[in-house]
Write a protein that binds this DNA or RNA. Structure first.
Lengths: 172, 172
DNA sequence: AGCATTTGATTAGTCTCCTAACTATATGGG
DNA sequence: CCCATATAGTTAGGAGACTAATCAAATGCT
């Protein structure tokens, strides 16, 4: 009776070992496993988050934009939003199209700079954020509940150091 | 001179605190930070991985499909691929279209089941995997290098427990 | 044996993200 | 002062993922 690996244990260490051995490489399978599991976890979490936000008629990107706007007291240019969200300006244009259609934000031309726009959080947008906050943050907390306070600190440290290693994937 | 937070430290604990306080919620800001940083890390890693694979004319999804096919000794049905990759069959159809166009796999009708197809890794597909393996695994290892062996073990444990908590975002 | 259900694969349509190209406005060096 | 360059925003087109609908083949229940 083969023990099926649980989805959070996919991919397995053995898979990593086989793949490395197949090419006769001198690589630490556990290091590969860390990288691959983090990718898998990111993808799974990303999908779950989209499902979560769809309950409120939002996507992860739209929620993040609204939250960022609220952090900025309700006004910010699309370029600034793109920079703080870490997405392209084209993506912000798309997010704003949806949010404006739903009446959660509106675009005003900037007074100082004729090229620029100002995105304003509407009353309806603020209300939406207020309404979904308890459930949203409650579920985030529930997700992280299995970790103790010390474990959370350790996790943030280790994750930060991995994120700092990401450029190794892409540089020169 | 305000110290700009480094990108791996975005979002900050203060941002989480403000957002929670704004709605008068009783939530642990550090727990929220863990959730939000993991999402951000997943997104960043996902993008970096796409850049990484684009050097070889592949995407992350196509690479994973090829690797899975190789683990299965070069033959598998699209449905099996979808199940083991954790994506929909429609997604596999799209990945196979690209891979077949590039001559890395081919589709044969199944002998046993007239509805089914068999995806076969071509010699060219196997060669591609062999060629990219050293750089691919080397870069993965470089990314994880900042963590010691013990830290990797701890990280895998904590990450696994967080992944097990993901359903809290979506259930009922 | 025949018909309903299930399963495998594809297609169509949506969503988010990307890059590249375009338009309009601002800025700064000669 | 004017023209080159840079910046803001949008548009166009692509890739990967999803769901839902479709079609063919296999299974299985009477």
């Amino acid at each position: 009776m083969a023990q099926e690996p649980r989805p959070e244990e996919i991919p397995t260490l053995d898979q990593a070992r086989y793949q490395i051995r197949r090419y006769g490489l001198d690589v630490d399978p556990q290091a590969v496993l860390v990288a691959v599991r983090l990718m898998a976890a990111g993808a799974r979490l990303g999908q779950a988050v989209e499902v979560h936000f769809s309950r409120f008629g939002l996507s992860a990107g739209r929620y993040r934009l609204l939250a960022d706007l609220e952090d900025a007291d309700g006004e910010k240019s699309p370029s600034q939003l793109a920079a703080s969200l870490g997405v392209s300006r084209a993506t912000v244009t798309g997010l704003l199209d949806g949010l404006e259609r739903d009446g959660l934000v509106l675009r005003r031309p900037s007074a100082e700079d004729g090229r620029s726009a100002v995105v304003v959080l509407t009353a309806r947008g603020a209300r939406k954020m207020r309404e979904l906050a308890p459930e949203h943050f409650g579920r985030l907390q529930a997700m992280v509940d299995p970790l103790s306070a010390e474990e959370r600190t350790v996790f943030l440290d280790l994750l930060g150091r991995l994120v700092r290693g990401i450029p190794a994937l892409t540089q020169d």
